[in-house]
Simulated scan of single mutants.
Amino acid sequence: MVKLAERAEKLMGMSPEIWQRHANPWSGWSRVAALPLISLAVWSRIWIGPWALLPFAVSLLWLWVNPRLFPPPRDTHNWMSQGVLGERVWLNRQKIPIPHHHLRMGHILNTVSALASVLWLAGLIWLDIWATLFGMSIIMLAKLWFIDRMVWLYTDMQPDHPEYAAWMKNKDSR
């Protein structure tokens, strides 16, 4: 599971600078739209046939461009920014272990999301609107819950780890 996350991070080219930009709440919140956009792009094959590959490619490109599009936030004292910072902590858990309760819950939420992905993909393949919408809803709810847990993880970890504490920005400190 860790290797999959590491591969995804490398594929996305997530350097520390890009992570700082992704901590902008505009980046996090606008990225929430990715799954509905991908779903709509796949469903568009009904209306535009093979041209559906174009909106599908654009929606995948959005996943890559999004963390690079926004400037680093001046202030990270908000839910989405701290959720993104917590994701960095989560991905770094091989180097700096995280508390067991965060690890367990993160795995549970990622498993729920993975299982819902099967339903979502089936809905996309078979053009079943209810499977698509239900699977997508569960994926998105699990992801938002995961982000909430990452806020908690970051809050727990940053006081004891100067590297993590340094990621926190305050608009009044500039």
Rank of each mutant, 00 (worst) to 15 (best):
G86R: 14
R93A: 15
I46E: 07
L54M: 05
N66C: 09
I48K: 02
N78S: 08
S81M: 13
L53W: 13
L61A: 08
G49N: 06
P50V: 09
L109D: 00
K95A: 11
K95F: 12
L60N: 04
L53F: 14
T76Q: 06
A52P: 15
H101C: 11
L91K: 12
H102C: 04
L109T: 02
S44W: 00
L109R: 02
V65R: 02
E87I: 10
I96A: 14
L54W: 05
H77L: 09
L63A: 06
W47K: 04
E87R: 13
G83K: 09
W90H: 12
Q82R: 13
N110R: 10
N110F: 10
D75P: 05
I98T: 13
L53M: 10
V42W: 13
H101N: 14
N78I: 08
P36H: 03
G86W: 02
Q82T: 05
G49F: 09
I38L: 07
A52W: 03
M105D: 00
N110A: 13
L91S: 05
P99V: 15
P72D: 00
V58C: 02
N92A: 15
I98Y: 05
V65I: 11
L40H: 01
P97Q: 14
A57E: 00
L60P: 01
S81T: 09
R88W: 11
A41W: 04
L85S: 03
V84D: 03
R93G: 02
H102N: 13
P97G: 13
P73C: 04
P67E: 11
H107G: 05
L63R: 07
G83W: 07
P73H: 03
R88K: 15
N66T: 03
I46F: 05
L69F: 14
L103K: 12
N78L: 00
L63E: 04
G106K: 04
G83L: 12
T111K: 08
Q94G: 10
W47M: 07
L69E: 02
P99M: 07
L103H: 14
N66Q: 10
L60M: 12
I46T: 11
Q94Y: 03
H102A: 06
H100K: 14
L85D: 00
R45N: 04
P36C: 07
E87N: 13
R93E: 02
N92L: 01
L85Y: 09
F56V: 07
T76N: 15
I96W: 12
L40G: 12
I46D: 01
F56H: 09
I98N: 08
G106A: 11
H102T: 08
A41E: 00
